[in-house]
Design a protein around this nucleic acid. Sequence first.
DNA 1: CGTAAGATTGCCT
DNA 2: GGCAATCTTACGT
Length: 201
Amino acid sequence: MAKLPLSFYQNIEVNQLAVQLLGKRLYTCVNGVLTGGIIVETEAYKGVEDKASHAYGGRFTDRTRVMYEQGGLSYVYLCYGIHHLFNVVTAPQGIPHAVLIRGLEPVEGLDVMQERRNMPVLKPNLTAGPGALAKAMGIDRGLNAKDLGGDEIWIEDKGLSFNDDEIVSSPRVGVDYAGDHALLPWRYYVKGNRFVSKPNS
DNA sequence: CGTAAGATTGCCT
DNA sequence: GGCAATCTTACGT
């Protein structure tokens, strides 16, 4: 195993980190069952500056507390009452940056994932999309604020990396009106991968 | 095919 | 009370 060192997560450039996370392997071990896959889509959340971030403007609550911690922790929360979303907390303590994992290419424990998602047949959207992949990996609030170097949920470097021309960055959807800030390409995905949540052109 | 609407719970500097 | 970083299903074409 080659788990990512704590220092990896201390980078203050979330966008850079979001790119570096592509190709890494995310594993969870829930109830003694191992599942894992390759990260193929991420989205950077730039804490205080990012309107979509829970920590926008310096919001500090019980829920967002983890985001202000030192990088290398998990941040899991429930969205729309149904979906769990998994984030990687990054940057040194006090800076609430995070990277949302949006797409995963399943590698380990396929059958378990399909069972958890109630999908008898393997379809590309098994783990495409943040809510979907969290469910497939068995991630819920119980995995919040975990050390990503632990043995319940962790990230490994298997030496897989992508060239710049294999990585696509895109702005968020439906933000044309928001001015210069809206154009920042904070979403990254691997070109042509079937497990990206959006069709690539 | 594509679009549209419903589900459902925690959070709230 | 109103909203939220979404997914699935249903229906029309």
